[in-house]
């Protein structure tokens, strides 16, 4: 089987953040899909299961935490790891993060380099997903 680059979903209602993060990830060898809000992200993951989600916290319609919580309810997406971006100084309830299985939180203004390092720590490029086999058991184990 041919290994493909890992697929990362970047979700933020601020398009410049989406551009900065996805460019950084693409340049590092990731395939990136993007969504401008949590609702669209939920639709998107049904069609293509990402290896990792990088999502903003505050978004219209469906917040980052709500998005992750919704992913956990569906068996197919329950194990997709997530990293959350938040405004600096924004207090998040650790219990809520734990329930939504959000592995890491990065405060804005963030260093794109650090976001990349965190992504690489969870899904290294070399250890990418196997070629198209979108069954749920192909998804990597959540950390």
């Amino acid at each position: 089987m041919v290994t493909q680059p890992p697929l990362v979903l970047v979700c933020d209602d601020e398009s410049h953040i989406v551009h900065v993060v996805s460019l950084k990830l693409r340049n590092a060898g990731y395939e990136v899909i993007t969504a401008p809000d949590g609702a669209e992200a939920l639709e998107l993951v049904k069609r293509r299961l990402p290896d990792l989600i990088v999502t903003d916290y505050q978004m219209p319609y469906v917040s980052g935490v709500e998005l992750c919580a919704a992913l956990r309810e569906d068996e197919a997406t329950a194990d997709v790891p997530a990293i959350m971006l938040t405004a600096r100084g924004f207090r998040l309830d650790p219990a809520e993060l734990h329930r939504a299985r959000i592995i890491d939180v990065v405060s804005k203004p963030f260093s794109p380099r650090e976001v990349l390092l965190k992504v690489q720590a969870i899904v290294p490029v070399s250890g990418g997903r196997q070629a198209e086999a979108p069954s749920p058991d192909q998804s990597p184990e959540a950390a």
Partner: peptide, 17 residues
């Protein structure tokens, strides 16, 4: 857009630094 995003990424990097 790509160029601006790269520049913005640098600016984020500096700001965060």
């Amino acid at each position: 857009l790509q160029g601006l995003s790269l520049e913005l990424a640098d600016t984020y990097e500096e700001l965060s630094l």
